[in-house]
Simulated scan of single mutants.
Amino acid sequence: MHDGIRWLVDLEHWMSSVVFARGISAQELAVRMGGDRDGATEPITDAEAWDLGEWYRPGQDGDGVVRVGEHGGWSFALEYGDSTGGERLAEISRDGAEAVHYVPMQEHPPATVFYARDGAELCGFGLGEEVWRWGREPDLLLPDLVAGHVLEPDGTTVIAHEREHYTDTYRRTLGVIEQRFGLSLSPAYLGEARLPAYAVRGTPDTHI
């Protein structure tokens, strides 16, 4: 079953992000995000990940954890707490790998998408703000966004979409990303499905 990633728009209380990587294993993804290669926990659920350690400490850096797995030909990492692993896309994508980082930003729209390949952050943009693109190749996904009726060929927003609810526009753009890269993630991974977790920042108590 192909779950795609458009359903991520509908998450209401999940404030972390998702990193997808192709060309490396789930364990290697965790390591490139800052984890210890031998530091995996026993497989845990999404709810159990949120119960780990002290995420935020006044005046100090917070803890960060990722749960990792493989789905649809890509490795993926779900970020929790104060993880900064998703900011390391150049490192994640080195040596011919690819990486896609989706940040929901539900309390502070827009959500953002970044794409990196072979050690370079190539393009990124905010969902609903695709007219402003950045990276080494900011127009890399422009043809896909045009084909997906997100942008006009000149890079401006499709006027007919201006009155849509932001979740509808987000879903359309995620559909473009989903199709371009063949991304898929099962909703079960944010439910009761168990995945190994790695500490990637701070000292969370990962003993379950």
Rank of each mutant, 00 (worst) to 15 (best):
A160V: 02
G4T: 07
V100A: 08
L190Q: 07
G175F: 07
H149I: 03
E12D: 13
P204L: 12
R133D: 01
A30W: 01
E42F: 12
A193V: 03
A49K: 03
R172A: 09
V131Q: 12
R171F: 02
T167W: 15
Q27T: 12
G72C: 06
P109R: 09
G62P: 00
H2N: 12
H207E: 13
L127C: 01
V31M: 08
L122R: 12
I159E: 14
P187D: 12
D205H: 14
V9S: 05
A188H: 02
E12W: 06
S25G: 15
A199Y: 10
G135A: 08
G175D: 06
D3I: 05
R32P: 01
R163H: 12
L29W: 06
C123V: 13
W7C: 10
T206F: 09
L29V: 02
L185V: 04
A147K: 13
A97D: 00
M33A: 05
G128R: 11
E178R: 00
A97S: 08
F114Q: 10
E152G: 01
G119T: 02
A147W: 04
A26E: 13
G86W: 03
R117F: 05
I208K: 15
D36F: 04
E164L: 12
S16P: 09
E48C: 00
G23H: 08
G128E: 08
P196A: 15
D3E: 14
E70F: 06
L151M: 11
T112S: 14
A40N: 04
D36K: 08
E137F: 10
L52R: 15
L183H: 08
L195R: 03
E164S: 09
D46L: 07
I208Y: 15
W134G: 00
I159M: 09
V146Y: 07
R57D: 07
L8C: 02
W50V: 00
I92Q: 10
D3M: 06
T45W: 02
H101E: 07
Y115V: 07
A21E: 03
T45K: 00
F181I: 00
D36N: 13
A77D: 02
E91Y: 01
T203D: 15
G175T: 03
Y102V: 11
P187L: 13
G53W: 02
H101K: 06
A160F: 01
R57E: 07
H108E: 15
L8I: 06
G73C: 03
H161I: 01
Y166M: 08
A47C: 04
G202N: 05
A26N: 09
G191F: 00
V68T: 10
G155V: 07
G155H: 11
C123I: 11
P58V: 06
G53P: 02
M15C: 06
G81C: 01
E91Q: 10
W55E: 11
I5C: 09
S83N: 08
G86L: 03
F125T: 00
H13N: 13
L140F: 09
A160M: 04
W132V: 10
L127G: 01
S83V: 03
Q60C: 08
R201I: 02
G34F: 02
E137W: 08
E98M: 13
E137S: 12
G119S: 02
